[in-house]
């Protein structure tokens, strides 16, 4: 089978979704870990240093290109699959099978993904663009200038509407992961029940803990729990 045949088949397309999904899960671990530095109670010194490393070091910069590619593939392929899948039904049912056979969020991955895409656009505009392109206020740490990304977070999260939007997005992320985490591993072929049951439990844990940690960040910033 040629690469083209493989990646244009329905299973091949799902393999792309699964592998990029797992890659994005790994990214979330790095992201949540680094962001947790805001709770170091040091006025953002540790966080700004960490953010500086991610922006200045060549390794995370190369990984960043991979990250954008991963997001791009996951989003485009996701929408293409959704369109293909919708076409496969033809006439709609009068009575829907609904929650009798499956969880609502497993059937709503495209909707949850769209909410996350919307979030991603605002999120990049809020932090990535100023930090990488348009520039930020400097902060002096040990006589050296750093971008004050921490200060930018405090400013952005003064607005309760933005905080609410971030929290809602984290809930979307939780449900997207609740299905996506274990589904990705099934899609790439993990079928030993010993592993699938483990991955299911880990997946539920991950999809609660990580989005909860993310949601606590704007809330902490808004309510002044960081100092």
């Amino acid at each position: 089978m040629t690469w083209k045949q493989m990646f244009t088949s329905s299973v091949g397309k799902k393999l792309v979704m699964g592998f990029t999904g797992i890659f994005l899960v790994l990214f979330l671990i790095v992201h949540v870990g680094l962001n947790a530095c805001i709770w170091a109670m040091d006025n953002g010194v540790m966080f700004n240093k960490a953010a500086h490393f991610m922006g200045a070091n060549v390794v995370p910069r190369i990984l960043e290109i991979g990250l954008f590619a991963g997001f791009f593939l996951h989003i485009i392929q996701g929408y293409m699959l959704e369109m293909q899948n919708r076409k496969a039904r033809g006439t709609a049912y009068a009575v829907s099978y609904g929650n009798k056979g499956s969880k609502w969020y497993s059937r709503s991955m495209a909707l949850l993904g769209t909410l996350l895409l919307l979030f991603l656009i605002f999120h990049i505009k809020h932090f990535w663009v100023p930090s990488r392109i348009t520039g930020l206020e400097p902060m002096l740490i040990d006589g050296k200038e750093y971008h004050n990304l921490y200060g930018e977070m405090l400013v952005v999260f003064e607005n309760p509407v933005i905080v609410a939007f971030y929290v809602i997005s984290c809930i979307s992320l939780a449900y997207h992961l609740a299905h996506g985490f274990q589904s990705a591993f099934r899609t790439i072929g993990i079928n030993n029940p010993k592993y699938t049951t483990l991955l299911e439990s880990v997946g539920y844990g991950f999809s609660i803990i990580v989005p909860l940690a993310f949601a606590m960040m704007p809330i902490s910033m808004h309510l002044g729990w960081v100092n």
């Binding site: 329905s10 699959l81 899948n85 056979g101 497993s106 059937r107 299905h179 099934r186 079928n191």
Partner: peptide, 24 residues
């Protein structure tokens, strides 16, 4: 036919209770 989203609706409806593990 469409692609698989692993929702599990197929397994729940199957009169022969074929396991979704087969899809993986």
């Amino acid at each position: 036919f469409g692609a698989c989203t692993n929702t599990g609706a197929c397994e729940a409806a199957c009169p022969k209770e074929i396991s979704i593990t087969n899809i993986a």
